[in-house]
Nucleic acid binder design. Structure first.
Lengths: 104, 104
DNA sequence: TCATCAGTTGCGCAAGTACGCAAGCACCGA
DNA sequence: TCGGTGCTTGCGTACTTGCGCAACTGATGA
């Protein structure tokens, strides 16, 4: 593992923070099934449209999702399949932690 | 990608937030080279000992690091090698995003 | 041109977080 | 038992974040 500069770590941390909210993770799970408009996402995730727009802005500025405009509708999709790899890895870590913790 | 429950996502998000601070990422990079005491970490990362102790508490409650006590010294180490895998993946995503963004 | 629909942005509030500093606690050597 | 070292905890402050609501922008269709 190479040492990073402070700037790089700042950038990596932004991705971490983007992954640090349950609603945003729910967005990623939804987008894993295909692209969605903002209103579709807000319905499926269960929050208001302005709130969804803000979450999407966080995800986009972290580089995790991309947007495409078609007529008056904006469709979001995962920017990179590795985003899902990272999320899955986090799920695995959380899972194995639960095993160690609860003795299951 | 399977859908998660709200509780699971809360747990995954805790890991994301733990990865969402540059100093904590620096701790992970340092621990990648072997276990360290709190005072060693605070010196290498560049912050005060109480602050480091708090960051370590965040990492530990997310299940990313483990602690071991030897005499009066507490040594921390990575709880799981996959933590580094996840971090590396995040670095890769950030890196490829920079390529896309800056056109390099 | 005008009303409407899809998204974004601004604002205010409540909650959470990072940090420094001081105090507390646990362990160890003398 | 006492002083010192190593770490954790409590407290106050400044900053950030998630959210709802209202206002705004830009594209669409009559």
């Amino acid at each position: 593992m190479a040492l990073s500069t402070e700037n790089e770590r700042q950038r990596f941390a932004a991705i971490g923070r983007a992954l640090g909210d349950p609603k945003r993770l729910c967005v990623l799970e939804t987008l894993a099934r295909g692209e969605r408009s903002v209103s579709e996402l807000s319905r499926e995730v269960g929050c208001q449209v302005p709130n969804m727009s803000q979450h999407l802005a966080v995800l986009r500025s972290a580089g995790l999702v991309d947007a495409r405009r078609d007529r008056s509708t904006v469709y979001y999709r995962l920017a990179d399949p590795r985003v899902l790899d990272a999320y899955r890895l986090i799920q695995t870590i959380a899972g194995s932690d639960r095993e160690r913790t609860s003795g299951t």
